[in-house]
Design a protein around this nucleic acid. Structure first.
Lengths: 226, 226
DNA sequence: TGGGTTTTGACAGTTTTTTGACATTGATTT
DNA sequence: AAATCAATGTCAAAAAACTGTCAAAACCCA
């Protein structure tokens, strides 16, 4: 069982770790940004989330996670606030359970177990732009009845373009999202864009990748007069 | 939203009805037997279950329901007992949430909403895909009259594939489910998939394991034209 | 010990990704 | 207008990564 604990209080963290550690695989995050990053990057069974966090509010994190994660792990909110209003806000943000401090560790455990039992929600987010739709889950672009599978890099690039559309996204940003700090030292990105363009045009879509010289690329629906 | 309320106290029943009635479709049961009968016969979004019931104990009902229902609605237990032991018993019986009396009706509502959000558990005593069925209990795949026993690892993999179907499941996920943090450092998973494929094809099933390069494997029914 | 289960390692075939060489474009300078 | 330069497009070929295949070794348990 993999559990992510997002909690800045080191004492509570240590308590949770002591109590759950042999049986559960725990990851810890000390602030909201780090927590969201871990949550999105890994496949946890449950996420335990404190509401008061440095860097990013728990409510905010919860909303962001639920909207961005492909596979939503259930979220157990942990907080000192006990009013109904607080709970409503928490649940409205997408929490699946709510435990107020102070709490018994055993109760935390049984609630984690109960949450982990249920299947996770899949985020069926398929993107689109003009007549084109793209499903990042299986890396397939569709136009009406025809479709083409993309490989990994092409998929990431198209997703980024679609998310950014109708704005441009810089080559640097794309590069960073794909390769991180060490991009290939040659124009690999150019080649991928080139291939993506070939695929798009083979689909006869009205969308095309426009280049904004020295600014980046933009996915745009061709206007009828071109 | 359909909610079944199993509760013998008429006052509480009336309160719940008054509070939820316009927005939720409520069914009521006044004793355990009737409750179980309704629960199994209908497809509720949530079941609210009091623990102290005439005719059949709530714990008992919960266990019976979870083992017999094909599509398990989440169960919210409602009780005056507030000790950790009681909660443990409740969750162990299959409850998904636990609220102690007295409670605020608004809290009941938001917890019902939270429970209803999650997908229901399919009762997986035996899984299937296309013409194939697999019983995880004894690790045997069946196709009509013929069957083959699987060994442990193959069984886990086939179960995961069937649970995920028709979606793909990543090699990483499978690997994690089988070996946890330390997978074997060589392509053991590849070998298991290879063997599984041999077994499936020896059964002449129409299901096959498709590979989604760099994304994972998918169990799929072969279309007739291949 | 023996037999099934699981992992290892090697190899081949395929797909994906990167590289590098060259052409083209558009802006800027001379 | 011509020359220049950086950014980008084009493409084929090399490199790397991924996957299938299978026999043999290691492991485990009765």
């Amino acid at each position: 069982m993999r559990v992510l604990v997002i909690e800045d209080n080191l004492d509570i963290q240590a308590n949770i770790a002591d109590f759950l550690e042999p049986d559960y695989v725990l990851d810890f995050a000390y602030n909201g940004d780090h927590g969201l990053e871990l949550a999105l990057a890994n496949d946890y069974d449950v996420i335990v989330l404190d509401l008061m966090l440095p860097r990013r509010d728990g409510i905010d994190l919860c909303k962001a996670y639920k909207s961005q994660a492909n596979l939503q792990a259930p979220i157990l909110m942990l907080t000192a606030r006990d009013t109904l209003e607080d709970k409503e806000v928490g649940f409205a943000a997408g929490a699946d359970d709510y435990l107020t401090k102070p709490f018994a560790l055993r109760e935390l455990r049984i609630r984690i177990d109960a949450l982990a039992k249920r299947p996770k929600i899949k985020n069926a987010s398929s993107l689109n732009c003009g007549d084109l739709t793209f499903d990042p889950a299986d890396n397939v672009v569709n136009l009406g009845s025809s479709s083409k599978p993309l490989n990994n890099k092409e998929g990431v690039i198209l997703r980024l373009l679609m998310e950014a559309a109708p704005n441009a996204i810089s080559g640097e940003t794309i590069s960073y999202r794909i390769w991180g700090e060490e991009p290939p030292n040659s124009g690999a990105l150019r080649t991928h864009i080139y291939n993506l363009r070939k695929i798009l045009s083979s689909l006869k879509t009205r969308c095309e990748i426009e280049t904004d010289r020295s600014r980046g690329y933009r996915l745009k629906e061709r206007s009828s007069d071109e």
